[in-house]
Design a protein around this nucleic acid. Structure first.
Length: 294
DNA sequence: CCCCTCTCCTGATCGC
DNA sequence: TGCGATCAGGAGAGGG
């Protein structure tokens, strides 16, 4: 379940191993993995081959590789990176370096000019690659498909007070808003529950009915839990989420409520509950995070 | 515009 | 042993 910390771990791995290299071959094994590239698999392949990866970037759960035209006589980074390969991992996507032993879920295979193999593996095929133009949005250059995605809490330009103001106007449950990537990005079901627990807020409460202070603390908790997860290499419950070398993170050992139904709250000892919410599970402490009156 | 529900997908697991 | 139901959930389409 890659959320911001897991995607950032992957981005760092790609930055270290593929930046500066040129794409020499791309093979699309499953068309669904490139369905968001409207011009189709052949166009994606034709446009990628020969391009050089100048840098890696990320916003929320979106990851992208900036590309130039691959002209070797121009210094890296000097040519305008006018296009980007946008990568979304969806539920189960993996960006792996090297050959892939089990090819069952290999969706896209790329080769770089130093012989490095770059594989996109995705069991549930919610993720995918697409090539896009870069656009200027609010002082940052992002791929067009990412233009509507809000800044994430680890973005140096993240404006917590501005997001609090947005949330104060939302007559909707706060957890729903934490998961809305156009309000604040990078937060998925796991970190939403963890942030709500840290801030002692029940996810069913109406966002507009929380105080500015509560909302500010909640966003602070989200940033804190994701930064801690990043420091531990991300969260993983199974082998689906891995870094570019196929290894899992350790943050699942540090989760306080997510997945801990019927266990004790680490803070007050109450029994953690699980409820259906938005066709998903929500975990919370009934004492630390009392439900709102209906 | 705002808010919310549904849908896409595959593999693990459970009950019968 | 098999088989259908359920669960996991990011994000966008579409409905009210």
């Amino acid at each position: 379940m890659p959320e911001l910390p897991e995607v950032e771990v992957v981005r760092r791995g790609l930055q270290a191993h593929v930046a500066g290299k040129t794409i020499t071959a791309v093979l699309v094994h499953h068309p669904r993995a490139v369905r968001r590239h409207e011009a189709g698999p052949a166009d994606l392949t034709a446009q990628l081959v020969g391009r050089r990866i100048t840098a890696t970037d990320r916003r929320g759960k979106y990851l992208w590789l900036n590309l130039d035209d691959g002209r070797a006589d121009e210094p890296l980074g000097r040519t305008a990176a006018d296009m980007a390969l946008v990568i979304h991992l969806g539920m189960s996507g993996q960006m792996l370096l090297g050959s892939v032993p089990n090819t069952d879920h290999l969706r896209i295979a790329a080769t770089l000019d130093d012989g490095t193999a770059l594989s996109f593996v995705d069991q549930r095929t919610f993720g995918g690659w697409q090539l896009a133009d870069l656009v200027d949005v609010d002082g940052s250059r992002v791929p067009a498909p990412v233009a509507h995605i809000a800044r994430d809490p680890l973005d140096p330009l993240f404006d917590r007070d501005a997001v609090v103001t947005v949330l104060r106007g939302k007559h909707s449950e706060i957890k729903r808003q934490l998961l809305d990537q156009t309000v604040v990005s990078g937060i998925g079901n796991i970190y939403a529950d963890e942030a709500l627990w840290r801030a002692k807020v029940n996810g069913a409460r109406i966002a507009a009915k929380l105080t500015r202070r509560q909302l500010g603390e909640l966003l602070g908790a989200a940033a804190e839990v994701m930064r801690e997860a990043l420091d531990q290499g991300g969260t993983s419950f199974d082998s689906l989420y891995v870094n570019v070398n196929g290894q899992s993170g350790y943050f699942d050992r540090s989760l306080n409520v997510y997945g801990r139904e019927d266990q004790n709250c680490p803070r007050c000892g109450s029994v953690i509950r699980r409820e259906k919410f938005m066709n998903r599970s929500s975990f919370y402490c009934p004492k630390c995070q009392p439900r709102p009156r209906r």
